[in-house]
Every structure is written in C-alpha cells, then in structure tokens.
C-alpha cells in the first residue's frame, strides 16, 4: 500500500507544481513507483513541468466521470520508467471533481504505486480540499515571506480539520518545504528567516530549496529539476528532502549559512 502525499500551500506561485515534479522524480530514481496527480483542474501545469504535454489523451476528470480507465489516463515518463503522471483537465472546471470519484481514483493508485503525490491547486476551495482529503502526509510549500506564511498557516489548520485522517482522529503528518530561499536577501533582512517561519508554523522542516535559475530553466525545458541536473543546489536539496520523506534523519543546512573560505573570496554567485 502506497503513501498519499499532498503538496499544498494556500498561496499560488510558491512552487507546488515544481516541487511535486522534483520530489516525484527524486523518489522514482530510488526505484520506487511514483505517480504525480495534477488536481489543478482548469489550470493544469504539471504536464508542462514534466514535459508530457503532448502526450495527454485522457485526464483525471475523464477517469472520475467514467469516460476513461485509470490505465488509459496515466502517462509514463520517458526518462524514468517508474514515474507516472495523471494530468488534470484543462477544459473542465473543478466542480467535475466529486468526493467519491476522487476517493476511488486515490484508492486505486494507492494499490498500484509506492507514492501518490497530489499536486494541489492554490486556494482553499474544492480542488484544494479534495486534493488533501485522502492524504497520509502533507507537504506545505512556503516562501519566506509573510503572505505565504500566513496562507500556509491557514492550510495547516484545514489539514488538521478537513482531511479524512483528521476526521478519524488520526494524526496528519505535516512537513514544511521552504522554497525560493535566497541567502543574499535573507542576509539583508529582506526575507523572513528560517527560524521565524518555523516558529510561526511549528511543523517539522523537510527541506530548504534555494532560489535558483536552474529551477526556472528546468521547468521551461519540461524536466523536473531533479532529472535535469542532479548536481545543482536545488536538485541536491530536493533529493535530500525525498530522503527525509523516506524517514531518513538528515540535518537541514540553511543555504548561505555555511559559506566557506572560497565564498568569502569570490563573493556571491549571481542568482
């Protein structure tokens, strides 16, 4: 039986889809069977980030409405054979997602995969609540700025009240993934510090992804950053986050805090 993860944030544009794809690809490189499900019906993006936009035939809504079988809608990644994508519909709207339909799909995916990663849409409406409904683990993606942190706090409240786990009185495992962290701006005090974010949200830290051009470049190429270049800083951070998801106890390093000898001499790398 696989684990269902929801990648959520409340606020838009913080890196949910990028992180879903990167973590999915990182987990699949261990040989685990992974499916990434796009819940952003009407505004799908995951297919682009994963470079599968030209292979979409059926989608989540087709499966829920019984117009296609699950196996017909799943798209296997061309680079990693244990990585799959279940795309969202671009033409329908969120009302086509029903609670029973989503439950059926998630249950089927849980049986067939080790990891089911649900990429939640922004907001706290239907799409977002259904994406988190059946999750075992939540990854809350947050940028180090006040509006993102407050929205994440709201989402954590919903995770603790509106999910099946919460309703059954079970504990909902929640992790914080701090993305777009810019060491230079943090040093200048333009951004919230890691400690401040952790103090406000008080959930365990899964990783800190540094702000980097590598992420943008990989997204534009339709390659998850963990597949594009496994030596880049964001890629290493995602790989470490995936290992922590697997239960490994790795210390989190805050980017920029351990600038060594060379850093002092050669200054900062242009972001």
């Amino acid at each position: 039986m696989g684990k269902v993860i929801v990648v959520t944030s409340g606020k838009g544009g913080v890196g949910k889809t990028t992180s879903s794809a990167a973590l999915g690809a990182a987990l699949a490189q261990n040989g685990d069977k992974v499916v990434v499900v796009d819940f952003d019906v009407g505004l799908r993006n995951l297919d682009l980030i994963m470079g599968a936009e030209r292979r979409v035939v059926y989608d989540l809504v087709n499966v829920i409405q019984g117009e296609a079988k699950l196996t017909q809608a799943l798209i296997r990644d061309k680079r990693l054979e244990s990585l799959y994508l279940l795309p969202a519909s671009q033409t329908r709207d969120k009302d086509n997602l029903t609670e029973e339909g989503v439950e059926k799909v998630i249950r089927a995916l849980k049986h067939a995969f080790d990891w089911v990663i649900c990429d939640s849409p922004a907001g706290i409406e239907r799409g977002a609540t259904l994406a988190m409904r059946h999750a075992d683990v939540a990854i809350v993606v947050t940028n180090p700025e006040v509006s993102s942190v407050r929205d994440s706090d709201r989402i954590i409240g919903l995770l603790d009240s509106k999910t099946l786990r919460a309703e059954n009185g079970e504990r909902m495992e929640k992790h914080l993934l701090l993305t777009r962290y810019d060491p230079a701006r943090a040093e200048r005090g333009d951004m919230l510090k890691v400690d401040d974010v952790l103090e406000i949200l008080s959930i365990p830290l899964l990783g800190i992804i540094p702000e980097s051009m590598d992420v943008l470049r990989a997204s534009n190429l339709g390659t998850p950053v963990t597949l594009a270049d496994d030596r880049s800083a964001p890629s290493i951070a995602y790989f470490e986050a995936a290992r922590r998801l697997n239960g490994e106890d790795l210390p989190v390093t805050i980017p920029g805090e351990k600038r060594g000898f060379f850093g002092k001499f050669f200054g900062r790398k242009a972001a």
Partner: peptide, 8 residues
C-alpha cells in the same frame, strides 16, 4: 495544546 491557526 495546539497552535491556533490562521482562519480559525
């Protein structure tokens, strides 16, 4: 004994 979250 839990934090009171935004919106609650």
């Amino acid at each position: 004994t839990q934090p009171v979250r935004s919106g609650q």
